[in-house]
Amino acid sequence: SEEEEEEWRRAKERGEEIIILGILWKPNDEEAERRIKEALRRV
């Protein structure tokens, strides 16, 4: 969703871990980033 995407962007800017759509994303975690982008597209 729009607000999840916004939340994720803010976490990326701050360089902090975030759990979004049930996926743990850490800074520079390209695999998780790809999965999150896929999940955001499906929503």
Rank of each mutant, 00 (worst) to 15 (best):
S1F: 15
S1W: 15
S1V: 15
S1Q: 12
E2P: 13
E3Y: 15
E3Q: 14
E3I: 14
E4T: 13
E4G: 10
E4A: 15
E5M: 07
E5D: 10
E5I: 06
E6G: 01
E6A: 07
E6P: 10
E6T: 02
E6R: 03
E7H: 11
E7D: 14
W8I: 13
W8M: 10
R9W: 11
R9N: 14
R10W: 06
R10G: 11
R10N: 12
R10K: 14
R10E: 10
R10D: 09
A11P: 01
A11I: 15
A11F: 06
K12L: 12
K12T: 09
K12I: 13
K12H: 11
E13I: 09
E16R: 07
E17K: 09
E17A: 11
E17I: 10
I18C: 14
I18V: 13
I19M: 12
I19V: 14
I19K: 06
I20N: 00
I20M: 04
I20Y: 04
I20T: 00
I20V: 09
L21E: 06
L21W: 00
L21R: 10
L21Y: 01
G22R: 00
G22C: 04
I23S: 01
I23R: 00
I23M: 01
I23N: 03
L24I: 08
L24D: 03
L24E: 07
L24T: 08
L24W: 02
W25K: 00
W25Y: 04
K26S: 11
K26E: 05
K26A: 11
P27H: 00
P27M: 00
N28G: 15
N28P: 03
N28L: 06
D29R: 01
D29Y: 03
D29G: 00
D29V: 02
E30T: 09
E30R: 08
E31H: 07
E31D: 11
E31G: 07
A32F: 02
A32H: 02
A32S: 12
E33Y: 03
E33K: 02
R34Y: 04
R34I: 10
R34G: 10
R34H: 08
R35G: 05
R35W: 03
R35F: 04
I36D: 03
I36W: 03
I36K: 00
E38A: 06
E38K: 01
A39R: 08
A39L: 10
A39H: 07
L40K: 05
R41H: 12
R41S: 12
R42V: 13
V43T: 10
V43I: 15
V43D: 08
